[in-house]
Amino acid sequence: MRIGVCIKGVVEDNEGSKWVINTFDEYALEEAVRLKERDEKTEVVVITVGPKDLREMLYAALATKADRVVHVVATEEGMSGFGIAAILKSVVWQEEIDLVLLGKQAVDNASHQIGGLLAGLLDWPQAIDVIELAIEGDEATAHRLAEGGKIEVIRARLPAVIGASKGLNEPRYPSLRGIIAAKKKEIKEITLEELGLAREDLYGIKVERVFAAPEKGVCKFIEGEPGKAAAELVRLLREEAKVI
């Protein structure tokens, strides 16, 4: 089996421009590695779309037992989720992937789109927001989180798309041996042109402007000892804000 793990590079808070793997994609990568540990014939291909300077992040991904990387070099700026999913679809076809694992969402923009879009474009079954996964032969059984704390069990014939959530596993830290071995593994860079994709198909959404999220306004601090402050709060919520 060949597993494709789609990872997104995100810039973490206060860490300058250092790219790291989106947290939810780390669960996907760990799960793929665990499947490989169960069956050595499994190949794990890491797929990413992003700018050229993702090397460090990609070595971190390869420091696990992942086999190789396909890096579609393209700036994501202004590209829609649909565009990213269309690119991933091309790579999935090209690499003849049997199972796609990815995070349920990215931590930076939290759009929660790529898994469903990719599965839809491929016309593959999907389970997104998955906290438990079992693969038996060509069948996947996934537990996904649903409304009201319910868990839905999805059974799908492979190929399929699985969106990892927190709780699926505990990603491990790479070993020193893994870090050294990573440098010898293949990182294949490809362009959109090589995938036969026209740029204009990948947009469709324009960023008009980005602005600092506004603060809510002036906070009215309620002073006094707890009993008095609480009573005053309740009065204000009732008489001024009219929400209770």
Binding site: F82, Q113, L117, G120
Partner: peptide, 23 residues
């Protein structure tokens, strides 16, 4: 943008072959 909406709409967008904006 409920848990159901988050799951359903990306797949629908793929079927219509158009981008979507969530949340």
């Amino acid at each position: 943008s409920t848990l159901l909406g988050k799951d359903l709409f990306p797949r629908i967008a793929a079927m219509f072959s158009v981008p979507m904006i969530s949340d």
